[in-house]
Every structure is written in C-alpha cells, then in structure tokens.
C-alpha cells in the first residue's frame, strides 16, 4: 500500500551533471515518463527505490493481519473473497518489487533490508486483527487510505511505478468496496455484530488517519519529491480528502467516529478533526506497536523455513541445464 513510512530525509542532491539534470527536469516538467534506461539523478533513483520497496514490503507484511482470518471467515463467500484479497496484495508486492528492480536493486536485497529492519513498511500493519469486523475495517479504511495515496502515484514520473500503480489501484478500490460492504452487513446485523463493527472502527480510525504521514509542517521530503513529480499532493491534503470521503460513509451505516472534534465545517466544506497523537505514530514506527515483533518474526520464519525450497529449485534448475548441455554435446 502505502507511502507513509517515507519520512526520512531526501537524498542530498549529489553534484551531478548540470546539463543532464536540466534535461531530466525538463522531461519531468513536460509530464513525460522516465524509463529504466534513461539517465536519472542518483537521488531520484534512491528515493524511488526506497519508496517502491517500502510499498512492496507493506503489501506483503499486510498479508499477515488479514491472512489471520482466512481460516475463520464466517461464510464460504467471505472466505473466498478474503483469500482472493490477500492474494491480490501478494500480487501487488510482486509488481512493485519488479518495478523497484528496474532501478537496480534485486528482490533478494530488498528482502534482506526488510528482514534486517533497515527498510520500513507501513506501520498500520503493526496493529492486530482481533475480530472479523477488523477485516471489514481494513478494507474500508486501510485500502481506502491507500487509494487516496496511490491514485496520484498513477501519474508518477517513473514509468514502471506509475504503470504498476494503475493496475494496483483498480484492485484496491475493489478491496475498499468489499471492506465497506462487510462493515455495512455487520452494522445492520445483530447488536453484537454492530458492536463488533463499532469496536473495529474505534481501533482502526486513528491509525488509518496516520497512514498519510506527518503533517506537512513536519515533513522533510515534500519539496524535492514534488519537483520530481513522485509526489503530487501534501500529506495533509490527502488526509483531508480521505476523511471527507470516509466520514459520510461511516455515518451512513450508523457508526460513530472516535473523535469528539469531528464536525463538518460549513465554511471550508471539509470535516474538521481532532488532534492526531503523533507520539503513538512515532512509537509504532520505531518498533513498539502491538505487533511489530510478531509481523517481522513471521516474515523471517517464512523466509527461513523456505530457504531449503528455494535452494532446491536452484539446484534442480542447474542440474537440468547441465543435463541438457551434456545431451547436446553427446548429440554432436
């Protein structure tokens, strides 16, 4: 999903070739795409590699909290839909790793960075999925927030990333509708089901609002990434857009948002909202969210337990190559 974790300083603009740089910027300014073999500033390459790989990591870590509920989904239709959704997220991870690989870093290297803790992923996935309603809330809110972030990325200056995003956004909006439909079913169900939906909204609302990252006044990277046309809107603009779109949806199904300051501002035509608890945000990013350790432990376990399988596949491929080569020699 999500570009939220990109809250680190921009790469310093290395003293590059001014002629090439001017040509690059003119290309970007003209809304033309940069392709893998085009010249690009080192900082652009590094910023994109970091952003795309973090996005890819988020997709695959994000498979864990939802994957939790596949075996417990309450109907066969929901089970199939959730399995397909989690599988889609894996597919998103795959396209994004491929897009990042065009910038010169291998998937294996990116995996190592994730598992060593060097690379970040969206910290929304460090929250636990405690009830079935969390599956609705994640689709509705987390995929919903992801779409707000990602639609502008469909116009990102880097061609492979922009193209991956177009494909991904279609699926994310399907996930968002599916999640909302789960919430609606619960909100209109038994009193226990409605309470389950409300509890999920209470727990997921603020973390979802935080997915857009720090307020613009505290953000360290916006200017350069805007000039490079990687980013198009500020964190605060995207957050406001998300809140404006989501609040009426929640009210429509009779749910309350856990924010006593939330109210429609007739002048601005936007929803005003309360103070975001940035200490919690920083704490979760720093590693002390409820599930950071479990998520990384599971990712590492999958990687470690699968090593012998990957080794076997390589060994077999090599044996086969050797046999084919030997057969060819024998035939000559």
């Amino acid at each position: 999903m999500y570009t939220q974790a990109l809250n680190v300083k921009d790469e310093p603009a290395a003293a590059g070739d001014p002629v090439l740089e001017a040509r690059f910027q003119a290309h970007v300014d003209a809304e033309l795409k940069i392709e893998p073999n085009d010249w690009m500033p080192e900082g652009y390459r590094k910023t994109l590699t970091r952003q795309i790989s973090q996005h890819a990591h988020s997709e695959i870590v994000g498979m864990l909290p939802e994957g939790n509920w596949i075996t417990r989904a309450p109907t066969l239709r929901r089970k199939a839909a959730l399995l397909a959704k989690v599988q889609d997220e894996g597919g998103h991870g795959l396209y994004l790793y491929s897009a990042a690989e065009t910038l010169g870093t291998s998937r294996e290297q990116m995996f190592e960075q994730l598992l060593s803790g060097k690379a970040k992923y969206s910290s929304i996935f460090n929250y636990p999925t405690l009830t079935w309603a969390d599956i609705g809330a994640i689709g509705w809110l987390v995929d919903g927030a992801a779409i707000m972030n990602q639609i502008p990325l469909c116009r990102c200056s880097y061609g492979p990333y922009a193209r991956a995003m177009i494909r991904i956004c279609k699926e994310e909006s399907f996930h968002q509708r599916q999640g909302y439909e789960i919430m609606m079913t619960l909100a209109r169900g038994t009193p226990e089901q409605k309470a389950m939906a409300q509890d999920a909204l209470n727990r997921w609302w603020w973390p979802s609002v935080m997915m857009f990252g720090p307020s613009d006044s505290d953000s360290q990277h916006s200017d350069q990434t805007m000039r490079w046309k990687i980013k198009r809107f500020s964190n605060d603009d995207l957050r406001q857009k998300f809140i404006d779109a989501t609040v009426p949806q929640g009210h429509f199904i009779g749910l309350e948002f856990p924010d006593k300051d939330l109210k429609f501002n007739e002048e601005t035509k936007h929803w005003d909202f309360g103070e975001i608890d940035w200490t919690e945000f920083k704490r979760v990013i720093a590693g002390d969210g409820p599930c950071n350790k479990q998520r990384m432990k599971q990712r590492r376990a999958a990687h470690d337990n699968g090593r012998w399988v990957r080794e076997a596949a390589l060994a077999y491929a090599e044996k086969r190559r050797n046999r084919e080569a030997a057969a060819k020699i024998a035939a000559e």
Partner: peptide, 19 residues
C-alpha cells in the same frame, strides 16, 4: 491451502497456493 498464504517459501507460491 489457504493456511499457507503469507507464509510460503517464495512470493510466487503465495499466489499459486492461493489460486
């Protein structure tokens, strides 16, 4: 098969086992 999703040896297999 669905128990594997997110835990398989390689991302391509998460998708294949899911399918």
């Amino acid at each position: 098969m669905s128990e594997w999703i997110g835990h398989s040896p390689v991302l391509e297999e998460d998708l294949a086992l899911g399918n």
